[in-house]
Design a protein around this nucleic acid. Sequence first.
DNA 1: TGAGCGGCTGAAACCGGTTACAAAGAAAGG
DNA 2: CCTTTCTTTGTAACCGGTTTCAGCCGCTCA
Lengths: 344, 344
Amino acid sequence: MTTIREIAQLCGVSVATVSRVFNQPLTVSKEKREVVERVARELDYRPNESARALATKRSGLIGLVWDTDHRRPGWRHPYLQELLIGLKSALSAHGYHLLMLATSGSAALRAVGASLADPVAYVNMTRRHHLGGLVLIDSGSDASAFTAFAQSGLPCVAVDVEVDGPRATYVTSDNVGGAAMAVRHLVEEGHRRIATVTGPHANRPAADRLAGFRAAMAEAGLAVPPEYVVEGDFYRPSGQAAMRTLIALPEPPTAVFCAGDEMAVGALLAARHAGLRVPDELAVVGFDDIELAALVDPPLTTLAQDKAGIGVAAARAVLTMVHGGEKPAPAFLPTKLVVRASSR
Amino acid sequence: MTTIREIAQLCGVSVATVSRVFNQPLTVSKEKREVVERVARELDYRPNESARALATKRSGLIGLVWDTDHRRPGWRHPYLQELLIGLKSALSAHGYHLLMLATSGSAALRAVGASLADPVAYVNMTRRHHLGGLVLIDSGSDASAFTAFAQSGLPCVAVDVEVDGPRATYVTSDNVGGAAMAVRHLVEEGHRRIATVTGPHANRPAADRLAGFRAAMAEAGLAVPPEYVVEGDFYRPSGQAAMRTLIALPEPPTAVFCAGDEMAVGALLAARHAGLRVPDELAVVGFDDIELAALVDPPLTTLAQDKAGIGVAAARAVLTMVHGGEKPAPAFLPTKLVVRASSR
DNA sequence: TGAGCGGCTGAAACCGGTTACAAAGAAAGG
DNA sequence: CCTTTCTTTGTAACCGGTTTCAGCCGCTCA
């Protein structure tokens, strides 16, 4: 590997000059700069990132914390792939790379009792590797670790989880607005008895979707009887169970808004088992626009999240802080109503 | 941040001794070792990975190349999530982390004409960051870059793509065996006219699945007329089109083995459109066991890949080479036949 | 008793960059 | 013409570890 000393020698300049050519080109005279650049190219010079990171205390890496919750082995992130694409492209556009930190997914580490969901471990890794900051992806459970990390003062951005701290912010969809759109759509279709299946109330997106639902219902002058709000857990069975409950009511709803597509699919199943025709006897709207939504029968009306956009927003937010900027306000990305046969 | 010099001073030993305590503990006397360890703990010492990497030329990082093919924007890896889980946990069990390298997914980079699908860029990154090696995940298209990288002599392991090079190997499912299992299952169900929808012939897993199909058919003493082998591209529409072709044959098959679940779903659609009852008039078997397989109607019989296991195998293979071991032979992980209603 | 050996330890070089500081030369101002 | 300021450059310290090498010590064995 070529080093700047070799280049310096060949060009008859000092190492400082060579270093400057790559970092503050304008402070070097045009002639020397061109010579150095040419020689560097000829020798296929590549800066040693470790040496750089050592000297500058910056590595050009952003940590990615993505805990696979071992209490829910089958859990899958609804849009990890798109999220990663967005993250990666936005980061690499600024010369950053993404370091996936080891997490509780490691059976070996768990065996030693060293769950890396431990925020101390995050901080540890961040400092050891001179990470600029972290992107935290909801594991579906252990958000407490995120909160704790957010307190550490290191730049971090959470996706779909509310966190707060000196340099911590989060990115999620406009859940309030999305839910409201769902309700308005159903109202336009003529529904007046509209129920909702929510996510866990402690979950920020779930709470927001419920809030949006209530707001839009009020706006439409419709009442929301307490039994029309059933709490689920984002998984399909809970949606199915909730729908069964709703169907059994003395005055069942004619439409239901589910805070997640998986639960909406569960609702479709419950409707089918009860012999209800969708959308004629029951309209269903979901949230997320997972791949499955377009494939179930009938295809599911849902609110599409800007999945890659969320990744991009997260990347931007963390980079802003890394570069010393103010902590950005939480971002709420717009969602898009995708009308399919389940509601029309 | 605490450094080994501080620790050395506090303990009244040299920095060399402190360093040894962490790297070759047995060469240090018990007393000094314990003192150093205690002080390090009290000071919350964390080794500076950049300094380490600089001195040792090893960073403890493995590169992950996952190209999102911009020619197929909607493309999604069938099991990226499970793959990552397997990779991560196996790597972290050995103290390694995964660095996601920026790729052609970056619009910004593409705009500059600097497609990072360029193997030169991979090598570049690998050296700059002192990566131990790379894991290459098929982008569905640009495998030529992988091949080129494999020639570089740096340790690399490809997933689901055949590569060869001095320190390059690959990991995939036992596609031959899986396909054979599919055929045997269909034969046991009484089928004799069995067709197949393959993937692109240039694709190694696709070729292997076809080979397994042919072998098992021969074993069962069944002929495979040329028109019973239709080439697809792993996407759903190609499966649907292929199935239409097969149904239109003068003597259509009673069963079809599709080299991928997406294509199998397409086949189910074609059957439904043609008014064929599945499995009574047409049995369908897929490959992959994607999430959707269990959810279509009827649920799809398929060959489940050991998704996380493939990640673990890839991690093991790359670590073996990183640690100076011989290049491991390509790994073919066993698949499991999951019988559902589409074939029974 | 002396040579030989193995276990521990420390001094110092080294990894490959960045950057503070000083100095030299050129340009500008009085 | 002298002073001041700006631009460009080089020297050398520094980032925080690892590792080579040599030396010291205490034992063993002849």
